[in-house]
Simulated scan of single mutants.
Amino acid sequence: MIEAAFAPVAVAVEAGAVPGAALGIITAGGRTETRVAGWAQIEPVREPLTAAHWFDLASLTKPIFTATAILTLAKERRIDLDRPLTDAIPDLRQYDITTAPERRLSFRDCLAHRTHLPAVEPVYTYGDDPARLKAFILQRDWRAGPPVYSDINYLLLGIAVERLTGAPLEAWPLDEGLSWGPPPGPAVATECCPWRGRVLKGEVHDENAAALGGRAGHAGLFGTLAGVLGVAQALLLHCPPAMRETVHATRTCGWDRAHPGWPGGDACSPATIGHTGFTGTGLWIDFDRGVAWTLLTNCVHPTRHSAAAASIFALRPAVGEAVVAAFDAGS
């Protein structure tokens, strides 16, 4: 199965569209196949990619960590998903209690990106004191707009997890193969960051997560190929219903559901969820077939501002369709 599924990845690596890539496929029964090719780093020196390398998972942090934590707290009856965030963060927009729209947002709204909040905000440009930046996020009068995929939703959810547990995010237990940075092993390089003035390797790529101390609800998690596949199999076996049920547009509590033109490809079943990360990562779970796959790349290395970096948008669905075709063929 892996040989046919890896074909588009091999072409992309050979053409220099991505420096390196790791593909893993796992079934509900635990059958696992993996393949790795290319470079963990090409600048300033080349380093071959191995299956032991840790990837900056970027926005895969949202479903793998934050949504899982919030749904666990809901299962423990510590929160109600349809109650407002103020149950966990009473000081949210505390200077505008009667009219601030943020005070009416529910946990479910944020999990499914069903809010008025903007996609992103350069919070890191306001400083690098995590406590002060969190206060800024909570008290900001956010510009309103139509519902979009928003990092701000998960920044708020990350703060909610900390408030509800009374501990920083890194205190939450993680499965083997997952870690907050710096990871406990060889790391894949991401971007030569203009803000930090260096190639990032083993430190979080997302600027806002970095300014918040490297750990945030929207980004900051690192993982190995085996670690992400472990998440995939756990979901194949025991996925919380809220992660599969559509809440808004094509979104569930934490994930995107299969729809035409999405990154998982058009061949997967309607009962498929998935998510991507800006650094070039992605994970998809097809429940009807009982198979999941993860494609981990460093497409933003050495810069996000290149035609090569944009190639990930074509590569992801091509890989998804190749995985499904190989699985259906029984190869």
Rank of each mutant, 00 (worst) to 15 (best):
Trp172Phe: 04
Pro183Val: 06
Asp175Gln: 15
Pro186Leu: 06
Glu191Tyr: 07
Ala171Ser: 13
Asp141Ile: 12
Pro184Leu: 03
Cys192Asp: 14
Gly145Ser: 14
Phe136Pro: 04
Pro182Tyr: 05
Val148Tyr: 08
Tyr149Pro: 03
Pro168Leu: 06
Ala119Val: 10
Glu191Cys: 08
His116Gln: 10
Pro186Lys: 11
Val161Gln: 01
Asp128Gly: 11
His116Ile: 12
Ala144Val: 14
Tyr124Ala: 11
Leu117Thr: 12
Glu162Lys: 02
Leu164Ser: 04
Glu176Gln: 03
Cys193Ser: 15
Ile137Gln: 02
Pro173Lys: 04
Pro173Thr: 03
Asp128Trp: 13
Val188Cys: 07
Asp128Met: 14
Pro182Lys: 05
Thr125Asn: 03
Ala187Cys: 00
Arg163Val: 03
Glu176Thr: 13
Arg143Ser: 12
Trp142Glu: 05
Pro130Gly: 07
Tyr126Cys: 08
Val188Asp: 04
Pro147Ile: 14
Val148Leu: 08
Leu156Thr: 14
Arg132Val: 12
Glu162Trp: 00
Gly185Ala: 05
Pro118Gly: 09
Ile159Met: 13
Ile137Leu: 14
Asp175Ala: 15
Asp151Leu: 08
Pro168His: 02
Ala160Asn: 07
Arg132Asn: 01
Leu164Tyr: 05
Glu170Ala: 15
Gly185Lys: 10
Thr190Met: 09
Arg143Met: 13
Gly127Ile: 10
Leu169Arg: 09
Trp142Tyr: 12
Pro130Cys: 00
Pro182Trp: 01
Cys193Glu: 09
Pro130Thr: 06
Ser179Asn: 01
Leu133Thr: 11
Ala119Met: 14
Arg132Thr: 12
Tyr154Trp: 07
Glu191Pro: 11
Ala144Pro: 03
Leu174Cys: 03
Thr165Cys: 11
Ile152Lys: 07
Asn153Ile: 12
Trp172Ala: 02
Leu169Met: 03
Val120Pro: 01
